[in-house]
Measured scan of single mutants.
Amino acid sequence: HNLTITQGKLFFHYNPKLCLSEIHKMEEVSGTKGRQERNDIALKTNGDQASCENELLKFSYIRTSFDKILLRWEPYWPPDFRDLLGFMLFYKEAPYQNVTEFDGQDACGSNSWTVVDIDPPLRSNDPKSQNHPGWLMRGLKPWTQYAIFVKTLVTFSDERRTYGAKSDIIYVQTDATNPSVPLDPISVSNSSSQIILKWKPPSDPNGNITHYLVFWERQAEDSELFELDYCLKGLKLPSRTWSPPFESEDSQKHNQSEYEDSAGECCSCPKTDSQILKELEESSFRKTFEDYLHNVVFVPRKTSSGTGAEDPRPSRKRRSLGDVGNVTVAVPTVAAFPNTSSTSVPTSPEEHRPFEKVVNKESLVISGLRHFTGYRIELQACNQDTPEERCSVAAYVSARTMPEAKADDIVGPVTHEIFENNVVHLMWQEPKEPNGLIVLYEVSYRRYGDEELHLCVSRKHFALERGCRLRGLSPGNYSVRIRATSLAGNGSWTEPTYFYVTDYLDVPSNIA
């Protein structure tokens, strides 16, 4: 807008934040220059609390790290170098490059900038070799853009010569660093050979998330399962459950009422301010606690030095998902009996873990797994792929695949051998790939016309006998059925096997 004052003059007093240069501009645009008398524009009460600059400061050096910015700028000295009290560095987070010096300023003089007072450097006698002032900004957020400017702080001049310097606002972004852990990993099994893994992005990506790394490792069953005799009275049979499938998407929606109208769909109840505040506090606490764990609990591995020492970490090797089922080394339970199943799973520490690289999504279907087997899954978020990966501390989750139908069934015939004193040795093959492992066998036998009897055969007993022995049988026709019990439950009964026990007292003698 054009402003013209045809008559009258300007009068400025007691404006401590208004620089004289701005008042002189007002004289020019209003056409009143030359009308004012000496005392109409006070030299001592206008701009006496402001830094009124008329020179431009330029930054000469900028260096960044993930949490620091090192700045240096060209030296500046007023005509009387004693008038320079120091520099004021202003900075704040700036997602967009549209910041002005006066953003967030209120009537009390406060604003949204963080201000650092910096002492002037030592003055050199040689004007050509003056030290460049600077400042190291610490405690910054990774991968965050900051708006920065600097200006001088000078003393009051009796001659009211307006001098000083100020830089333009520059924008500097800190470097990326390792992201925080992925949030809320959930693993479920939808079949006997697959596990579905879902997660949420890290709360602090500290860069642009480029991919996720998912490692999985087959877990050995508890050692007590191999040692305890679950045929003993009072000892509860062990059981394991597989990871249940995901709930429906509708039930997972946030901010939804727990109660549904019987007449149909209901609208979600909005969260109160107290609920939102509580969630923010919980989120802040979780982030602080995660940072504490990362800094205190997890110790970084030592990389190899120039002395030739090897990095103890196993090298990563990509495998196809079809090879995942046989990740671990199978060892027989008892070496003397080769027909026992290889369900003991000690994992070799030198073995390469299978892994998958996930790009542009937060889910993965891990296939080719062994049925009813526990897996430990390790999830890392990465925001750099080359020249070397920059990934987060791992988040861990466990899951067990679903049982395989008929995996616990005894394959092959049940054979028998009759000894003296009416002892019958029953023999059968253990299931080759049971659900988890076989903890015991149930032997059901009966003599024709009598009630059915049951015998429990422990895992250890089966390994020693290759089956079991029935003792003290009365003469007669017998039928026997056997079924295995694994961590997933009972298998199917075998087809009945028949044998006849004679009275050993009636056996004919070869003595003449």
Results as ranks from 00 to 15, higher is better:
F337T: 13
R316S: 14
K432N: 05
V501E: 00
F462E: 02
Q380A: 11
A395C: 08
C456M: 03
R318S: 10
T307P: 13
R319A: 12
P238H: 03
L473S: 01
V299S: 13
N490M: 05
T241D: 07
P244M: 12
A309F: 04
K361G: 07
L455T: 10
N421Y: 08
E290D: 12
P300I: 05
R218G: 13
N339G: 06
K278W: 08
V411C: 08
K361F: 12
C456V: 02
A220M: 08
K432C: 11
V334N: 08
V457R: 06
E249I: 06
S257D: 05
N422E: 13
R481A: 12
A330L: 02
V327I: 05
I366G: 00
P508L: 06
P270D: 15
V345F: 07
V334P: 12
P431Q: 01
E224S: 14
N208C: 11
K460V: 12
W428Y: 02
Y504I: 12
E452F: 13
T303V: 06
E265W: 12
E389L: 11
R353M: 04
T497W: 10
C231A: 02
E417C: 04
N360A: 12
C468A: 06
P244A: 08
D261T: 07
D273C: 06
A484V: 04
W242Y: 06
I209C: 09
V457A: 03
V327G: 08
E362V: 13
W493R: 03
D273Q: 12
E224P: 15
C267K: 09
S486A: 09
N326A: 12
F372T: 02
Y498V: 06
G472H: 06
I418L: 06
K406S: 10
R481M: 10
Q252L: 13
G476C: 00
K406D: 09
L369T: 04
A381S: 10
S239W: 13
K357N: 10
T307K: 11
F285N: 04
R313K: 14
P349M: 06
F215K: 13
R353A: 05
F499L: 12
L505T: 12
D503V: 13
V501A: 03
I276V: 06
N339I: 13
H416I: 07
V439Q: 06
E430T: 07
A484R: 00
C468G: 03
L228E: 15
D291F: 08
P245K: 07
K302P: 12
R376M: 03
H461S: 11
Y396G: 11
E420D: 11
P475L: 04
V324N: 14
T502F: 05
G308C: 14
C382R: 00
P403Y: 10
M427G: 15
D506E: 06
H371C: 07
T497P: 00
Q275G: 11
G449P: 11
H254P: 06
S479N: 02
P508V: 11
S348N: 14
S274M: 02
Y478S: 00
T241N: 08
Y445S: 03
N435Y: 01
S320G: 15
A463V: 10
L369A: 03
T373S: 10
R446A: 11
T502C: 08
E442R: 09
A394N: 08
T210G: 07
Y445C: 04
S320A: 12
E404S: 08
R376F: 13
A336P: 11
Y478L: 00
V359T: 11
H454L: 10
E281H: 14
G449L: 12
H461V: 11
L470E: 00
T386W: 15
E260W: 13
M427Q: 02
P205T: 02
Q256S: 06
R316W: 15
P270W: 08
N435L: 00
E227K: 08
K236M: 12
V214W: 00
T288L: 12
N339W: 11
L379F: 10
M402T: 06
I418T: 12
Y396P: 10
G322L: 11
S458W: 03
C267Y: 09
T328C: 05
R459Q: 13
R301C: 12
N208V: 11
L505F: 12
E378L: 04
F226G: 04
E279C: 01
E249T: 11
N490R: 15
S367A: 15
N206R: 05
R483L: 02
E265F: 11
R218M: 15
R319Q: 07
P434F: 07
P245G: 12
D323G: 15
E279D: 10
E282R: 11
I209V: 12
I418Q: 07
F289E: 07
L487C: 14
S223Y: 12
A405P: 06
E281R: 10
P270G: 01
E290P: 06
P332T: 07
T494R: 02
E265Q: 12
S479T: 15
S257M: 05
N383C: 10
Y504D: 13
R353Q: 14
V296S: 13
V507I: 11
K317M: 06
F289M: 08
L455D: 01
S342T: 14
D261A: 08
E389D: 10
L364S: 13
G467S: 01
D323Q: 15
S320R: 14
F372S: 06
S479V: 05
E389M: 15
L464S: 10
K432G: 04
S492V: 12
P314V: 07
F355Q: 07
S344V: 06
V359L: 09
Y478P: 01
K287S: 07
W216G: 03
M427R: 11
C269K: 03
L280R: 13
H454Y: 15
S341N: 15
Y441L: 01
N206Q: 06
C391T: 02
K271F: 12
S274E: 06
V214D: 00
V345W: 11
T210N: 02
P312Y: 13
T343I: 08
S284K: 13
G449R: 15
P338K: 06
F337I: 07
E442Q: 06
T347K: 07
V457G: 00
W493P: 02
S492K: 02
T497S: 06
E282D: 15
H454N: 05
M402Y: 12
V414I: 14
